[in-house]
């Protein structure tokens, strides 16, 4: 693609490790929410990370044979992408759109780490082709809230230690936020049942349920 641009998103300070690239200059559309620029844990009180400067064109990034155009609305911004029809929504978000907050844990709908919202409903993004989502409104964890401006559910997860390693956390939170609008009984058992599509191998389940229940009680 002649208009391909790349951007440095996450860069370590040594040579060769230049940063995150996207197939188009999406990050400027996404704004700060699209960029996770630092691994520093000091960010607890820091503002959302700023977009990194534009990098040069990726000469080696040739056109993808058989690719097709798709226009997705992600976190409120329109992304015009050229994707392999085989690309899942998950891989498209992670590998093409630079939105790596959504995780791959099994690639077969068996863990829930890839949970995102499509038109306000939670789905497994690993079991959907990106090309099926022309015009759909997609929300990822980056669009839910960022440090300094966390969604109440994100804040509750921090308060209740609703994670350990953090890898399944994006999916847990996307499920939990969706659950707030779903039919769900009042008890912990009701929440557990409806959160069971999100596996936490660290087993932070009691804390996750406590976080969800706190937000439900307050809202």
């Amino acid at each position: 693609m002649a208009d391909e641009k790349q951007k440095a998103g996450s860069a370590e300070d040594s040579g060769g490790a230049a940063g995150k690239v996207t197939r188009r200059s999406f990050l400027s559309h996404l704004g700060a929410a699209g960029v996770a620029a630092t691994a520093s844990p000091l960010l607890a009180a820091a503002p959302a990370a700023a977009a990194m400067p534009e990098a040069s064109e990726a000469a080696s990034d040739a056109k993808i044979v058989g690719s097709v155009p798709v226009s997705l609305r992600v976190n409120g911004k329109v992304l015009k992408l050229q994707v392999d029809p085989r690309a899942t929504l998950l891989d498209t978000l992670r590998e093409s759109a630079g939105l790596t907050g959504t995780k791959k844990g099994c690639d077969h709908g068996q863990c829930g780490a890839c949970t995102v919202h499509v038109n306000g409903r939670r789905v497994n993004s690993c079991l959907s082709f990106a090309v099926m989502h022309e015009g759909d409104e997609i929300t990822t964890i980056e669009g839910i809230g960022q440090p300094g401006n966390l969604h109440p559910m994100q804040a509750a997860f921090v308060e209740h230690d609703g994670y350990q390693c953090g890898y399944c956390t994006s999916g847990q939170i996307m499920s939990a936020v969706a659950l707030l609008k779903e039919p769900c009984g009042p008890t912990d058992a009701d929440v557990k049942e409806l959160m069971s599509g999100n596996i936490c191998r660290c087993g932070a389940y009691p804390n996750i349920v406590a976080a969800v229940q706190q937000v439900r009680l307050r809202s």
Partner: peptide, 16 residues
């Protein structure tokens, strides 16, 4: 915590 709940924590396969 804030990084982990917002998708900002960078795991190995998040590096592009």
């Amino acid at each position: 915590g804030p990084l982990k709940v917002s998708g900002g924590a960078m795991y190995s396969s998040d590096h592009n």
